[in-house]
Design a protein around this nucleic acid. Structure first.
Lengths: 197, 197
DNA sequence: GGTTTAGTATACCAATCGGTATATTTCTTG
DNA sequence: CAAGAAATATACCGATTGGTATACTAAACC
């Protein structure tokens, strides 16, 4: 019943919002603490550093995301295109449900290599990439000889989806438009059958 | 013959390197000045602020890039796939020639919306997007009825290429592998004809 | 009741942040 | 050579940076 109990969670939420809004490096620790109605030492009590805060954030939020994707990719049994479509939908759903965090992820993924923040996300992005690559590998029986193009497919697929989410968000930040099943299906269809399909 | 004469250029180069390496917000003005063997007021003499420095940087480097792409997109007359391939090659070439700047661009494009740095790149990224969209629009005669999917194509195409460059750079930062004509052609082929082609 | 432990706050640290007022040097031009 | 303009440096600004030493409070445990 004590409201104070969820200080930790509160700090994490405020951090996500601010990191999303202004970028990891542009946000001060004091700013996060103030937003969470907490003093700085309290923040440092839960997370031993600013980077530790980011790492905790990523750990708590990325793992469920990876798990969701992994489950879909591994449940694959029917047509590859169905799984691919399911994956695309799930990604858009994730972005929609947890919009600010998803965009934080995207921004960190493309941020400077030597930045500590990048190093913190890297393992998770690698895992997500691996899930997609593994799917293509596994779907080899249905897709025929891919001549080792599994990774190329994974790159293209993720590139399309992420860029799609980024661009759609510019037009409608609720991502309602982005989650239109038909639009997502068009992306998957093009991916699989090209633009003439 | 005075070496000091190109202080301005020197500052710009050092800024690109540092911004690429650590990210715009993570780099201090003093750091840039020191790297360029210059004092801070000198930097502020040429660029009236840190943001002004970034804007000058973008203006000088983005416009030639946009021009190169525009020329290719507008020279289109033969097969759309050839132009698309030429565009993809040009993008990879640009990334290869000016690697650090290109990655800076990518990172800024995906960075937080409310960050001043993002607002500075946005017009240029928009222009690049427009070039691609315009090409698909123009190629309508050869590609048939695209049902207003021009923008979807532009999104997918840019997403694929950018993600491709990002991932390939992880394996070989000279981008030698990335600029392999066959690999690029595979991307374009998949884009146009799907994965079964 | 007394003691520990988790959680929170006050007050502080040196270092750096972006930015500038002002003086000085260097170059160009009349 | 003198004068003005362009370029660079010294020295400083208040504010904020990430981080901490220390003390306090509240609840839990023996």
């Amino acid at each position: 019943m004590e409201v104070k109990t969820d200080n930790r969670k509160n700090i994490l939420n405020c951090a996500i919002h601010l990191f999303y809004q202004k970028g990891y490096d542009a946000v001060g620790v004091q700013e996060i603490a103030t937003a969470a109605s907490v003093t700085k030492p309290t923040l440092y009590y839960y997370f031993k550093s600013k980077l530790g805060l980011l790492e905790a954030l990523l750990k708590e939020r990325c793992e469920p995301i990876c798990d969701r994707l992994e489950r879909i990719a591994k449940d694959y049994q029917g047509e590859p295109k169905d799984t691919l479509y399911a994956l695309a939908c799930e990604l858009v759903d994730i972005a929609k449900e947890d919009r600010e965090f998803y965009f934080l992820l995207l921004s960190l993924n493309y941020s400077a290599r030597e930045n500590e923040a990048f190093k913190a996300v890297y393992p998770y992005m690698k895992r997500m990439f691996h899930i997609t690559t593994a799917f293509f590998l596994q779907a080899g029986d249905k897709l025929g000889n891919m001549n080792g193009r599994q990774e190329q497919f994974a790159i293209a697929f993720q590139g399309i989806i992420n860029h799609y989410i980024l661009v759609m968000d510019e037009r409608d930040s609720s991502l309602e438009m982005a989650s239109d099943p038909h639009a997502i299906w068009e992306l998957v269809r093009q991916f699989m059958y090209g633009i003439y399909s």
